[in-house]
Nucleic acid binder design. Sequence first.
DNA 1: CTGTTAACCTGAGTGC
DNA 2: TGCACTCAGGTTAACA
Length: 275
Amino acid sequence: MPELPEVETVRRGIEPHVVGRTITAVHVHDARLRWPVPPDFAAFALGKRITEVSRRGKYLLLALGTDASGGRIIVHLGMSGRLNVLDDQPPLRKHDHIEIELSGGLRLRYHDPRRFGAVLPWSADAPGHVLLDELGPEPFAPEFNGDYLFQRSRGRRSPLKNFIMDGHIVVGAGNIYAAEALFRAGLRPTRAAGKTTRAEYARLAQTVREVLGDAIQQGGTTLRDFAGAHGEAGYFQQDLYVYGREDQPCRICGSIIKGLRLGNRASCYCPRCQH
DNA sequence: CTGTTAACCTGAGTGC
DNA sequence: TGCACTCAGGTTAACA
């Protein structure tokens, strides 16, 4: 479900409600996630104050205590995760895994039917975290640019789409936004990463940033079940040019959008607009 | 090292 | 209704 824009939408949704509040109770109803919620998670979080809500790639980070002196909570939404801010206490639904009660009567509820997500403690003493240490740059960071992609791609034979979906190259572009960024750059997803030119990568770095930024402005893409921190849908699905549009006419040139599979993922491109 | 595949899960949709 | 099958926004472990 959630790529960078959806995670950022959730981050912005919860931030103003949780920063400054103290964790007064933690209920782990079902610890079975991508990695099990460790037994000491509740004790780790209890009594600490949330001081910051940040994001690294598709990971949400809740800093605990003054300048994270109490560590952080790492949240990943996987394919079907939701993190909601509640000001009441509706009955627990199936797949409501974790509830974090906050001072002032608010609560955070983590819900994840497919259980590909994660909620983990990150101790303040740990220098880094194995899930974050090897990630590529943020797409909005200055070091993410055409020259960087060009340099990292030399000698690589994998398709361009797989290359930019690799979180070790750049974080945040999943199946939707990789396809859309490639369309905006006029590049086919099947192109060999190592044979793409410096000028083309300059365009691609630009369109990756642009499409992610546009999607954040629209509150993300809601195809089936994505919802923000308050249950609201996103609107970027109205702005998709190729994702999910196989066999439909290109919105620019009218050619029929082609579908294929790359690395076990559905992919789409316009045979006329993309080369 | 690079690259490909299967695997982890549930639920929604489709076709018979 | 029921059953079998396919597919889904992510990531990594195992393998060639």
